[in-house]
Design a protein around this nucleic acid. Structure first.
Lengths: 236, 236
DNA sequence: ATAACAAATGATCAAACGATAAATAAAGAG
DNA sequence: CTCTTTATTTATCGTTTGATCATTTGTTAT
């Protein structure tokens, strides 16, 4: 039941190599970090049923050494989860989406450019899909956050932009939310094509994002208005 | 190296139960069909690393019996692939998309309604994603077909609708194709939310599809025109 | 140098897995 | 009924996999 090497206060001491990669005997903290870093890519590539022996070979250590740093495979996987899903959300995005000093087009273009670059990388996308298939609760929680921090605000800004009543007056409907999901999903699908299906598009990502946002904003008006009006009838 | 039970001409003979489910001893063809049917759902649920013992327990047979009908787990999986990815494409769709007697909006609404209903079900989506993660070539081939049979025709019809030059005059560019991908992807993402992330939306699917198509067509014009014009400059 | 500590390895266990072979039992033919 | 056929089961093999333990080897302090 050991949860890591005994020495935790050791650190690197003097000034050991900043990237001690070829030393036979590593500083425990550095070794642990190295294991986690490689495990992240390994499990992203092979899924969580990847074999510990293959992982060890990839790291360049023996398989039992993994168990000196992590009591079980599962605990290593949990650590990998933390490593991937922590600190990827930028709180500034929430205020960016609702900043009415900036035109809505610019806000959405900037947000989805930055969001796609920060979140949709090889490791994140594959792990997210792997854990979705596996049925882990991470996806549910994450998408709930997207709904509250992105989709609903986007709907609210769309309403303001079109001169429609605010969500406080008329709550956001399911079909209305689907509109925001479709925009969001088209960007996630780009990441899926790239990292799951391995299709390399020569098209510039930022330009593609801008185009899709423009198409969406140029066409969403009438449909959105109609949905909100129908929503208003049902509410009364 | 046996590839099935010896008797292939037996069939069900007289008039055995149409759905012989509880008989202790099944007709070989019926048994094989039963195994495949259950295997399809089993592997869709657990992925291709699902254990043969679990599959057998689910079917209600012993694990070695699987090996009387399939020489190996891999051969069973190949059979499952065939079962899922054959005859799901409706050739009529190709002529539907290009049928200029019908308004483009109606064509795309009808196509994506039918396509989503026929293709994007639990088994298909999960298997497609599982094999994508695994790196099987199926995805690549399938998406190549989507590109040729859906996206390029859609781009061509969009051009005709906007009075832009045909693809024979000016070839379809990468960014132009991305527009069609974004529409297509938003529908696939709906299926992912449902079958991978297990998010049940109360929103009516057909209505959501119609709305997205309308938004797309209402907004795509200027962006599309600009892309084609840029494409024309680069071509000369 | 040498003793003390711990990082890392080699050997190995127990359970799980795909696959095989022999034994059992259900159905039809005579 | 008896005999033949074969669908199905029971028992088991060889390998793989996560995990453990004793041993070796590199590092530091004295």
């Amino acid at each position: 039941m050991l949860d890591g090497p005994k020495t935790k206060a050791a650190k690197t001491g003097t000034a050991s190599a900043p990237k001690a990669a070829k030393k036979k005997r590593m500083d425990p903290d550095a070794r642990e970090a190295h294991i986690v870093a490689e495990a992240v890519r390994f499990f992203a590539e092979h899924g969580f049923e990847g074999k510990t022996r293959d992982l060890a070979k990839r790291i360049g250590i023996t398989q039992p050494l993994l168990y000196r740093y992590f009591p079980s495979k599962e605990s290593l996987i949990e650590r990998v989860y933390e490593e991937v899903y922590v600190r990827r959300w930028n709180p500034a995005w929430e205020s960016l989406i609702t900043d009415r000093e900036i035109p809505l087009t610019d806000r959405l273009c900037r947000f989805y450019r930055e969001y796609s670059r920060a979140v949709y990388d090889y490791v994140w996308v594959r792990m997210f899909v792997y854990s979705g298939l596996k049925g882990v609760d991470i996806n549910d929680r994450y998408l709930r956050g997207i709904k509250d921090k992105v989709l609903r605000p986007v709907c609210a800004e769309l309403r303001h932009d079109q001169g429609l009543p605010s969500p406080e007056e008329i709550p956001i409907g399911e079909q209305e939310l689907e509109l925001a999901w479709s925009l969001h999903g088209s960007f996630f699908y780009r990441a899926i094509r790239r990292y799951i299906y391995n299709l390399t598009s020569t098209a510039d990502s930022d330009m593609a994002i801008d185009n899709e946002v423009k198409v969406f904003l140029a066409g969403v008006g009438p449909v959105h208005r109609q949905l909100v009006e129908k929503q208003a009838e049902q509410a009364q």
